[in-house]
Amino acid sequence: MAYSAARFPRAAFGGGALAGVVAAAGFGSLPILLAAGYLGLSAVSYLMYRADKAAARASRRRTPETSLHLVDMLGGWPGALVAQQQFRHKTAKQPFQTLFWLTVILNLAAAGWLVWP
């Protein structure tokens, strides 16, 4: 059986990333301010995905994908992963997912650059 992208354990990966951020900050490997940024932006991203899914169901005005990607690139991607799985939102739209994973890579590269001695 082929492993589909829609079955990727997004919530576990996002939750694990946040746990890693908290642990790294606790051990002094990651600045507290950066960890707080990941936690805060993840909460914002989660709420944005939840609101967008609700808007889609109610045929209301949607959150622009560029806004979702911006918050994800700034550090909200762990919360986005949790929301994508919980709300089954934006998981099958391949162009969105391609750009989403690019924002994750860019964010991790920037964070690595910031904390690398």
Rank of each mutant, 00 (worst) to 15 (best):
P117S: 12
A109I: 14
A17Q: 09
L34P: 00
L34N: 12
L108M: 13
L18E: 12
R60W: 11
R61W: 15
T98W: 06
A5D: 07
K53G: 14
L99Y: 07
M1Y: 00
Q94P: 02
Q94C: 03
L108H: 14
L70T: 15
L81E: 04
G75R: 01
A54L: 14
L30H: 03
A55R: 14
L30N: 04
Y46W: 10
L114G: 05
G20T: 03
S59R: 15
F27D: 10
G40I: 00
S45R: 00
A23R: 02
Q97K: 09
A111E: 02
A80N: 07
Q86Y: 02
A6G: 10
P64V: 09
Q85I: 02
L47V: 06
T103K: 04
S29E: 13
M73W: 01
Q86M: 03
L106Q: 04
L47Y: 00
I105C: 13
P64E: 02
A110R: 09
M1C: 09
T63R: 03
G28Q: 04
G75N: 03
F96R: 11
P95T: 05
A24R: 00
G14V: 13
K90L: 05
P117Y: 07
K90H: 11
L108V: 10
A25G: 07
S67V: 14
V71T: 11
L106D: 05
V115T: 15
A24L: 14
Q97G: 11
Q94K: 14
S67D: 06
E65F: 08
S4M: 11
P9K: 07
M48Y: 08
T103G: 08
F27P: 02
A83N: 13
G26R: 08
S67N: 11
L41I: 08
R62W: 08
W77N: 12
A58V: 06
A83H: 03
G112A: 07
L41W: 03
S42V: 06
W77M: 10
G14L: 08
S59C: 06
R62C: 11
F27I: 06
L81S: 07
A43D: 03
G79C: 12
W77K: 10
W116N: 09
D72G: 15
L33A: 15
A83K: 09
M73R: 12
A92H: 13
A35T: 04
A51M: 05
Q94M: 15
V104M: 05
D52H: 10
V82N: 06
P95G: 11
T98S: 14
G15E: 08
G26H: 00
R62S: 10
K90G: 09
A6D: 12
V44K: 03
Y49I: 11
N107K: 03
A2D: 10
R57G: 13
R61D: 07
P95F: 09
L39A: 15
G20F: 01
S67I: 05
